[in-house]
Design a protein around this nucleic acid. Structure first.
Lengths: 248, 248
DNA sequence: GCGTTTTATGCAGAAATCTGCATGAAATTG
DNA sequence: CAATTTCATGCAGATTTCTGCATAAAACGC
């Protein structure tokens, strides 16, 4: 990994999370903390960020900030962290959109080599920031509010892909009602993904567990792994566990 | 292997992967690292890429990463303003990516009803903000630095569309050399667009008029309308005008 | 065609850069 | 204040780069 590359990644992380830890970065890209520290020092000297004891901070603290208000960001970050663990080098990964998926995209370790296939424009853009990830965009009509592509073409293309892993951003999940959503076309796409992927991972903040929307994507049994920000043995998740779903 | 050939290949690799290693390139085309280094130095001096210790990086690291400040934004705004005039209700409009196109996207009047087809993720996101525009995304592999989709699938899809209007963001244009660019795959996409659209509109800041890159998209005669920020009767544009191209 | 000039390429040795480690100093925490 | 963590510095090994030079190829003038 080149020096500039490393620094670009660090900068990206800083601007994203407003904070980075030397220790964390060191581990993430497999270089010594000394190197990280030198990188931080350099970036700070160029005024790109602020160096502090133990890591670095975004300039926005110091200057004018634009607070990115993602709902329940901490929970989603926890979920994304768990999800990243499932991805191995060489995998084909299929993903929907949504803020949880976006967190996942941001937490992918830079040395990971994999192919990400997605219908989500924001997710695709985020994946593109990673040096070793190949990104495939599924095209079709763009659903304006969710910024994902939907329609027959998209569905046909998804069917052509046998993904190793499929991450679904969940809108509502319930033991009886299954996985549900509220946009007809989005549901069609999710349905196809669930049907074709080898392993389906649902990512869902606990707040949405045991809720339901009007349109059904699939049964809970069709999901292989459920990730929430809660402890796997949490009471709220027992019903899903006993349905044979692996909880993370 | 000729020098120009080598450099074109290097540029292609850089634009594709965002990164090249001197050692890798040297081995790949069987020349010494010295030669590669000299090539990189040359390309960097021309501003086509960024040279760093151990290899080279795409310009996007240096520029597009954090800097929101679009180069020559005022010129591009003028160009976009002229371009908007060409679009009528009900049209199918095909567009590439690039900052000029993005300006166009932002200036579309809200009451315009049209279908926009694009390979550019940022452009698609921008189009999606408009209430009456239907957006079709062409899918395929994502070219990381240009954030547009490229490849056989994308080209095949473009061929299926008979667009009324095609807006091309121009990298370099010259009476002799025609419309040229520097990324092999991007060129393939642009070529297809020019070939299939009913009317081709090239958008180009005057700075890029009478410059050329290595890879040809099409002849100037293949363009129907050329838009720059200059007055249509400007001297610099006369050669194009006399080739039968309409100047705006 | 032939000699000259220019250009391109590879090589060798010196210089510069990058990175990890060790040491002691400084900062942080409880 | 003591323990822990983080930092700065210098240094060493590895890699990369630079420089000048030799050779070969191409372009040019005549």
């Amino acid at each position: 990994m080149l020096k500039k590359e490393r620094q670009a990644y660090i900068l990206h992380q800083v601007n994203l999370h407003n904070k980075v830890l030397s220790s964390h970065l060191s581990e993430q890209m497999g270089v010594s903390e000394d190197t990280i520290r030198r990188d931080l020092a350099e970036l700070a000297k160029e005024g790109k960020m602020l160096k502090v004891h133990g890591g670095g901070l975004s300039n926005s603290f110091h200057q004018g900030a634009v607070a990115q208000d993602v709902y329940a960001i901490e929970e989603k970050r926890i979920i994304a962290m768990k999800a990243v663990e499932l991805i191995r080098d060489g995998m084909f990964v299929l993903t929907t959109g949504g803020t949880t998926i976006l967190q996942l995209a941001r937490m992918l370790p830079p040395e990971l080599r994999a192919t990400f296939v997605t219908v989500s424009l924001p997710a695709a853009s985020e994946y593109a920031n990673h040096p070793n990830i190949e990104v495939i965009v599924i095209g079709d009509k763009l659903s304006k509010n969710s910024k994902i592509t939907v329609g027959g073409e998209a569905i046909a293309k998804i069917k052509d892909i046998r993904a190793d892993l499929c991450f679904i951003g969940v809108n509502a999940i319930d033991v009886q009602a299954g996985l549900t959503d509220n946009d007809w076309e989005v549901v069609q796409v999710k349905k196809t993904m669930v049907a074709t992927a080898k392993k389906v991972v649902a990512m869902c903040i606990s707040e949405k567990v045991n809720t339901a929307e009007h349109l059904k994507v699939c049964n809970v049994e069709d999901i292989d792994i459920l990730i929430t920000e809660l402890q796997p043995k949490s009471k709220k998740l027992q019903p899903y566990s006993s349905k044979g779903i692996k909880i993370l």
